[in-house]
Design a protein around this nucleic acid. Structure first.
Lengths: 189, 189
DNA sequence: GTCTATAGATTGATAGAC
DNA sequence: GTCTATCAATCTATAGAC
């Protein structure tokens, strides 16, 4: 509970920025948006972060922690690595509403930053690395035939394609059909 | 050749804006960027377009024309609808460099606009409609087993997932491997 | 650590002479 | 249709009192 008050403000900023970056995009989100949502004073934000880029780095770290906790939870609850892989696909289903509305928070962020913010994208890419490495590990444990790194990237790409189309067309039916197919593929592979 | 001079300036603006929106994103591109690239005077741009949104609509129309011409060319050169579908996959291969650098121009644009510019995204989505409907038609002509609209969306999603991962990791090897796999799938389906 | 006030640059957009 | 000049608003970021 060290720096309890300061941490609280800082976490408020991170949480609000995380949602704004996701719902509006990084460029489209202004400091005014963030301070309004987090209800902190305008200049005060620079006590906690030295720039907008710095806020994004904190948001990425926050998401990394959240997703790492999610993966750890699946490993603890599910002993069969193949069931863990299917849990990954079920995550897409359980988040269908936000995916159809705003796209994938990881994919859309990397798509935006990948265009002309290479240093920030390097940070955001760690979110993909997290899933890629975890999926590859579960695939290896499942005793799948092919190269597990290759299969992991294939799986990530399939999930991203599903989220993107579901977002473009606001189509949850498509998402449900494609994830069901992907689950069948995972049981066969 | 009516309005030859004015058309030239207008087309210059559209062409430069098209590349900037693709390479930097719509929000990240400013009027200064566009007038600098197109070498037109600052205020002059408003003689041709009434707003930045208006420029984007013109860019989308331009891309629609380009892609429609591409599809028509494939139909003319290839009589077998299955070969036309494979030409679609080969387009991804032939554009691997720009896809790895900037992502898919259609997918990344829709991803950005889909977040909080619903009216503009409706315009940009027509680019997806163009490919979806054309792919569905070719799939129907190929006598594929399943619903051709469903298969067309599946194919679009696969292509988008491939482009996205290739962009995030700047990985052309991944793109080549996945498109080869997609081509095999098209020959079987 | 919180707040007010504001700097300095850039944004999208306009007016009006030529 | 082209050009200069500039608007008002907004942007990220800073200074300094409390």
């Amino acid at each position: 509970m060290l720096q309890a008050k300061g941490e609280k403000t800082r976490n408020e900023i991170i949480e609000c920025a995380k949602n704004l970056f996701y719902h509006k995009g990084f460029e489209a989100t202004s400091f005014s948006d963030i301070v309004a949502a987090a209800q902190v004073n305008r200049g005060n934000i620079y006590h906690h972060f030295k720039s907008k880029d710095d806020i994004l780095r904190a948001v990425v770290d926050q998401r990394l922690q959240e997703f790492a906790a999610l993966l750890t939870g699946w490993e603890r609850r599910l002993s069969d690595p193949r069931e863990r892989l299917i849990a990954f696909v079920h995550m897409v289903v359980s988040r269908q509403d936000e995916l159809a509305r705003y796209g994938c928070p990881i994919g859309s962020l990397n798509t935006e930053l990948g265009k002309d913010r290479p240093l920030l994208q390097r940070e955001a890419r760690r979110l993909f690395d997290l899933f890629r490495d975890w999926l590859a590990r579960q695939l290896a444990l499942s005793g799948t035939a092919g190269n597990s790194q290759v299969l992991a990237l294939h799986l990530l790409g399939r999930a991203q394609g599903i989220a993107l189309i579901a977002h473009v067309y606001g189509d949850r039916t498509f998402l449900l059909r494609e994830t069901a197919e992907l689950e069948q593929w995972l049981r066969r592979v």
